[in-house]
Write a protein that binds this DNA or RNA. Structure first.
Lengths: 150, 150
DNA sequence: TCCGAATCGTTTGCCGTCTAATGAATGGCG
DNA sequence: CGCCATTCATTAGACGGCAAACGATTCGGA
C-alpha cells in the first residue's frame, strides 16, 4: 500500500505544468504571479516581506524581482528613510495583468477539480491541510533553527 | 472557497522539504533516490529509459547522473553493441543505500500521513489521482506535441 | 559619541526541471 | 552500398528554490 509520496509528487508536477502553461499564455513565468498578487494588494513592499508572505527565501524573491524588472513588470527603489530597504513597485504593465491572471487562476482551479464532487473537494482540502501541518511540525523538530528564539 | 491550487503547492513544498531533510541525512539529494530505485530494480539502464520511467526529461537525468557519478554512487559506460547508448551502473556505495533509503521513505510516508484515518487516506489518494489525470488531459490538449503520431 | 549587534538586500553556487541546439552513431531505403 | 532520417546523449541557458557568504545601513548601549 505504498507511495502516497510519489502520487503527491506526480500530481504536483502535472498541476504545475498546467499552471505554467496558463501563465505562459499571459507572458508570465510560474511563481511570478504570486509576487504580483502581493503587490496588487499592496504596492511597494520590500523583498523580505514578500519572501516571508510566500514562504520562500529572500534570494528567491530577489532573483525573481530582477527578472521581472527586466521584463518591465516592476521597478526597484530604495526606501528613502531606511536605506537598507528596497521596495518593489508595479509598472503599468504589472498592474494591467491583474484581471487576466486572476481569471486564469480561477479557470485553472475549476478545470483541475472538475472531476471532484463538492464533498470530495472538501475532504481533499482537509486532508492536505493535515498533511501540510504535519510536515511543518516534522520540519521544525528536525531543524532546531527557529526553535527557542530565547 | 478559494485556492486549492495554493494549498496543494504549499503542501508539496512542505512535504518536499521534509523528504529532502530525510534524504540528506543519508547523503543524498532529493530526486536521486528515484534514480537509484530504478537501478536497484534493474541495473545498467540508459538515461532515456530512466527519464521516461520518472516522467522527467532526459537532460534532467543526465545532469543527475553526472553529480551522482561524482558522488561515487554510479558509473557511466557506453553500450558496446550500440554506441549511442550509455548505461548507468551502480557502485557498491549506490547499492548499499537501498535498505536505508527504502526504510526512510516508508518512515516519511507514515509520519506524514499519521493524522489521517485509513478512510481519509484512501479518499485522498482517489482525489489526487483524479486531479492528476485531469491535469495530464489538459496538458495534452493545450500542447498538440504528442498528439497524432501520424 | 562611537562601536558593535541586528537588519536588509545581493551575490554566489548548488539542485532539479524544462526546452532548444548540438553531436555522435545506427539503420533503412533507394 | 551509400546517404539521410532516426535515435541517443550531452551541452547551453533559463527558471524556481535553497543556504551561506558578503556588504551596506541602522540602532542601541556604553
Amino acid at each position: 500500500m505504498p507511495e502516497f509520496l510519489d502520487l503527491h509528487g506526480n500530481t504536483n508536477k502535472a498541476v504545475r505544468a498546467v499552471a505554467d502553461a496558463g501563465m505562459r499564455r499571459l507572458g508570465l513565468h510560474l511563481g511570478q504571479n504570486h509576487v504580483l498578487a502581493l503587490l496588487w494588494e499592496q504596492d511597494g513592499r520590500p523583498p523580505g516581506e514578500i519572501a516571508a508572505a510566500l514562504h520562500v527565501s529572500t534570494p528567491t524573491v530577489v532573483k525573481m524581482a530582477t527578472r521581472m524588472t527586466a521584463a518591465g513588470l516592476l521597478t526597484r527603489r530604495r526606501d528613502e528613510r531606511d536605506n537598507r530597504l528596497v521596495r518593489l513597485w508595479l509598472t503599468e504593465a504589472g498592474r494591467a495583468l491583474r484581471q487576466p491572471v486572476e481569471q486564469e487562476r480561477e479557470n485553472l482551479e475549476n478545470r483541475l477539480t472538475a472531476d471532484l464532487t463538492e464533498r470530495e473537494r472538501e475532504q481533499l482540502i482537509s486532508a492536505l491541510t493535515k498533511i501540510r501541518r504535519r510536515a511543518l511540525e516534522l520540519l521544525a523538530d528536525s531543524d532546531p533553527a527557529d526553535a527557542e528564539p530565547r
